[in-house]
Amino acid sequence: MMRLPPFAYLAPRSVGEAVRMMVDHGPEAMFVAGGTDLYPNMKRRQFEPKVLVGLRGIQELVGVRGEATTGLVIGAGTTLTDVAEHAAVRGHLPALATAAGLVSTPPLRNMGTIGGNVCVDTRCNYYNQSYQWRRAIGFCMKKDGDICLVAPGSPRCWAVSSTDTAPVLWSLGARARLVGVGGERVVPVASLFKDDGIDYLAKARDEVLTEILLPPVDGLRCAYLKLRRRGSFDFPVLGVAVALGLDGGRVKTAKIVLGAVASRPREAAEAGALLVGERPTPALIAEVAEVAARPSKPLDNTDLTHPYRKKMTKVFVARALRRLAGLPDSPRDEEEVA
């Protein structure tokens, strides 16, 4: 079977201690929470940290606090199962409950955390392979090599942001609290990501993501749709998160965020703007979906073909909007109903 490389495991009891340990061990160290992303990656030698700073024993990172009406606060160490099943999350932020509940499999959701999910490594099917496989094809720049195998002329890595929850958090306007040696800061989730498959997080190495702060829910409707082959296990190869602030049938605010079509979640801002001030009619939705698919730039490095994923962006955005507008999934069904 595949074996882990050797490493030392440290078990801090507080965020402060964790940050200190990280600083002490420098670039040889990594944080680990549930380990559901990191350990399999280590078996494939995508990461070979000498030291792991475990976040599982830090109580302050666990749990959902506050009220939806004033803004929930979710500890980064809360498991995806707990997020997906939390009554207030389900009731007020169903898209988040859906996204968390669609990650991988039930056993992995019992281990995996929402913090780990936001920070989850980008993916590429030239990279998520064993050391021996990668050696055979000739390593790529994300690990052990110097070129990109998907886009050979490219100076950068195009590995795919594959988190389910981040697009939803972004669409909801959530913020993230980061604690590091330099102190503490709160940033929008939207600014947590960089458009680079290797250096994909705008976060210092020593910074722990401690909590996710959600804005008060107020007339907000949200949805998340995930494209993947099977009903379980699979990472998204397209995620569509939509959040609409509605005011008497008219759209007050609209955010459409696409996941798994680039190295970071991508907001389809132009498309969202088309909705503001309007009623979400079938015709408008069709137009918005067309525009929303523009920033979707998948490459051939995941399951399903990239032209298909691009095509589905339009279908999924339209579906998500139609659901929020109370319309059936497809205009065809509408005709049949009528």
Partner: peptide
């Protein structure tokens, strides 16, 4: 795709 995750 020689893995249980990616061989669908």
């Amino acid at each position: 795709i020689p893995s249980m995750l990616e061989y669908k």
